[in-house]
Design a protein around this nucleic acid. Structure first.
Lengths: 138, 138
DNA sequence: ACCTTAATTAACAATCATTTTTGTTTATTA
DNA sequence: TAATAAACAAAAATGATTGTTAATTAAGGT
C-alpha cells in the first residue's frame, strides 16, 4: 500500500472521495503485517470511530483491492484476509497459533518450518500458502 | 444555441453544473433574435430572478461562447452583443433605431437597405456588419 | 494629459449542485 | 450460523458557481 498521502491523491484522480472512515481504515492497514480479516479491521477502526459500520469496512477493503493497494486472500478458514504489502510473496499459517506470516524468499528467517513440511498447494490469485509452525509455538 | 435540454447535457458532459441562474439566462437567449447585450440579458433575467448578479451574466455568456452556443460581436458601440443563432450570417444595424437585424442571404427580405448603401467593412470574427435603415424607420 | 464614466474582468469567500459514500436493513452464500 | 454482498435512502465531500467588492480597460469630454 502506498503512503496515505499518495493514496488520497489516487482516490482523487479516480473521482473518489476522502472520508474519515477511509482514512482510519488506511491507517489501520498501513505497515500492518498481521494480515487482518475484515472483522479485525472493523474492531480496530471502531475503537477510534465507534459509529463506523461493518459494511463500510467491506466496501473500503474491496475498493483498496480494486485500486491494487491490498492483496486479498483466504488461508485458514472461510474469511478473507488483507495484506497491504502487494509485492509478490507467500504466506505460512502456523498450525498452532494460526498466525499468518510472510515468506518473502525461499523461507523467511522468521518462520521455522518443520522438517516434514506439509505443503498445501492451494493456489489463490498467484499466491501459494504453506502450513507450518512458527518460532514461538515450536 | 441548442435546446435547453441538450444544453444541460452538454454542461453535464463538461463537468459543469446546472443552476437556476444559468437556466434563466438560457431561456432569455433561446430563440432570441434581438442580439442582446449583457445588460439586456441582465435586466430580463432580473425580472424573474431579482438577486442575480451582473457578474454571473458576464460569466455565463462567456461560458456559452466557449461552448460554441452563442456568437459574440460588437457592432454599434463599445458593448458586446450575443446571438444564439450560431449559423454563419451577417448583421445590419439600423442607423436610425439602432436595432440589429440578421442578414442570412444576400440581403434579408426583412431589411430594406438604402440605395446608397454605406457598407462598413468592419471585420470581426468572420462576421461583416452593415449599416442600413430598417423597414420601420424608412 | 487628465478626469469621468461605463463596460468588463479579477479575486475570493460563501454557497450550491452533484456524485460518492455511508449505514441500515435485507438478502445471499457457504 | 457466520461472512459477505445488495439495495437504497440519507449524509457528506468536493469542485463548480455565485455574488460582493475591487480592479481594469476603453472611450469621450474638458
Amino acid at each position: 500500500m502506498e503512503t496515505i498521502e499518495k493514496l488520497t491523491k489516487k482516490l482523487r484522480s479516480h473521482g473518489m472521495k476522502i472520508t474519515p472512515q477511509r482514512l482510519m481504515i488506511f491507517k489501520v492497514l498501513e505497515n500492518n503485517t498481521s494480515h487482518p480479516s475484515a472483522e479485525n479491521v472493523y474492531k480496530k477502526v471502531k475503537r477510534i470511530y465507534p459509529s463506523v459500520s461493518f459494511t463500510t469496512i467491506y466496501k473500503t477493503l474491496e475498493t483498496l483491492r480494486k485500486l491494487g493497494e491490498v492483496k486479498e486472500f483466504t488461508i485458514d478458514d472461510d474469511r478473507k484476509h488483507y495484506d497491504p504489502n502487494t509485492s509478490i510473496h507467500h504466506h505460512v499459517i502456523c498450525s498452532t497459533c494460526k498466525r499468518i506470516l510472510d515468506v518473502f524468499e525461499d523461507f523467511s528467517p522468521h518462520v521455522k518450518l518443520p522438517d516434514s513440511l506439509e505443503k498445501d498447494y492451494a493456489v489463490s490469485g498467484f499466491q501459494i500458502f504453506f502450513h507450518g509452525i512458527c518460532k514461538e509455538c515450536n
